[in-house]
Structure formats: C-alpha cells, structure tokens
Design a protein around this nucleic acid. Structure first.
Lengths: 140, 140
DNA sequence: CGTGATGTTGAAAATCATTTTCGATTATAG
DNA sequence: CTATAATCGAAAATGATTTTCAACATCACG
C-alpha cells in the first residue's frame, strides 16, 4: 500500500533502510487493523525471521514520530498501531475483527469549540472513535 | 461528594466496607481530575497510612465494574480513573492541570449512526474526549 | 455484644510490556 | 572499496500490574 512512501519518508529523515525496518513498515502499512508491537513482531518475522522485538518497538516509535502511523486506544489496550490517514480523520472500529476505517468529521470542530466555550475551555484537540460491528462480522 | 453513595453501592453488591476501601473511594470521588493508581495510593495514604498499593488496584477495579468510576485514556497514559457521570457524557480535559469536566452530547448519536451506515457498520458505542486549556490555566 | 465463617488486607514474588545497555553487524557517503 | 556512524538483536533492567499467601477484620448470626 503506502509502504514505499513510508520507506522514502524514513530515508528523507536520515534514517537508514534495513531489512528489519522494511519488514515492520510493510506489515503495519498493509494491515487493515491496528496491531500491537507483539503482533507486528509475529507477522513481520514471516518476512524477516531474525527480526527482534526491540526493533519493532523502535521502528513503531519512528513511524509515530513521522505521523505515518498512530496509536489506537481501546478498552483492551492502548498500544496498537495503525496506518495514519490524510487530514483530520476519526476512527470507526469493528469490535469483533478490529478492522479500522477512517471517516471525516470536519463539521464537528465548530461544535467542539462551542462546547469548550460553555465550560471556559480553549479546545485545541479532540479524539473520537466509534465502535461497532462491521458487515463481515454482523452474524456469528 | 458521592463517596457515601459509592460506599453504599459497594455494600449493596456484597462487598465489605473497610478503612482501606473508604480511603480509596473518598480520594477518587473527591478528585477533580483523573488519578493513576499510584497517585491514588499517595493521596489515600494521607487518610489511611497503612494502605497498600495492591488494595488501590483492587478497589479501582471494583469501582470500574460498578460504573462508579471510569478509566480515562490520554496520550501520556491510559490508567487514570475518574468519577463517572450520570447518563451518557463526554469528557473535556485540561492539558495543563488535567481537570476533567463532563458535557452532554446527545445529538451526536444520530450523526454517529449515520456515519456507521455509510461504512456498513452497526455503531454501538463511541468515545469522545476534547482536550484544551481551562480558565485557570489560560496563562502561565 | 461475642464469635466464627469468609472476605479483605499488605508484603513479597511473579508476570508482562517496554526500555536500556552493549558488543557485533551493516548501510551508505565518499 | 572503505570507514564511520547508525542499527541490530540478546540480555539485563525497569516499571506497572497481578498473583500468592498467611494474618487480619468485617459483619451475619446467635
């Protein structure tokens, strides 16, 4: 998917391109759902068997820094990483298969600013996630 | 504040009322911001010095079960607990002093359901938090 | 108002995720 | 091709949370 773009971006920031990084980047870029470091480790080792868990942590950290991936918080953990979307987007997550889909919500900003004013807060950021069941998981 | 109500609710569920629990419950019920287990430990020990950290964890777990307190997720950690609000409410959090305020957003439900339909998701729950600066922290 | 069954306690040990350390390895500029 | 600095993975260290367990305290019942 966007793996090549991500690798180019890493390179542009002065980072070296190694097989270990390629394996991690490709794994996260291609996943339809957020993955924990441990899940990335298992999946990426199928591509590059000598990969170490430490490198997974280090690479995920860099992807987050560069805003290529983002952390996703859920009740069962706040350490899963998902490919980031363009622009300001929000998440829709399937509670069964964990599939994640981005949606736009530009029109919400004004509402949020208004809520802030009512409570004497200067709202700077917000965080919105919807949880439900996707088409594929509707039954079962 | 609602500490007495919480203790009554714990009792109603068959849990015993101990000094350790009272200290934890009063600490969380009175706090204007979400507290980590470790923060609860420090504060509650001012009331009950022999309190153990393990009991803090166990009591917070029960408060969450009974929906008296809820976990609050932030970038810098997802292990802080806050007194729960009545009804379906959302959070407004000050990034400086961490003070938390609840606000209503009933009218958002329809919008969320609509977003779900567009993506073939049956939306069941949502999670919304606003971040900003409160009156008291506006300067400095 | 005892008293005993049972829930609860806190310390210490165990577990689990994450970070740090370090010597060996490898990408890449020149 | 080579030198150098970034990166690697293993192992050790850390930090948060959970489990274990013997001592203790609550409260239903008499």
């Amino acid at each position: 998917m966007s793996a090549k773009k991500w690798l180019k971006e890493l390179r542009a920031q002065g980072y070296r391109l190694t097989d270990a990084r390629r394996a991690v980047v490709e794994t996260v870029a291609q996943s339809p759902r957020a993955l924990t470091p441990s899940e990335v480790y298992d999946l990426a080792r199928e591509r590059y068997p000598t990969l170490g868990l430490v490198t997974v942590y280090r690479t995920l950290e860099k992807l987050e820094e560069l805003h290529l991936a983002q952390r996703v918080h859920q009740d069962d953990g706040c350490n899963a990483y998902l490919a980031h979307a363009e622009g300001h987007q929000h998440l829709l997550i399937c509670e069964k298969c964990k599939k994640a889909v981005y949606f736009e919500g530009d029109d919400l900003d004004d509402f949020f600013t208004e809520v802030g004013k009512k409570h004497n807060f200067a709202v700077k950021d917000h965080w919105l996630q919807l949880f439900g069941t996707c088409e594929d998981c509707k039954y079962g």
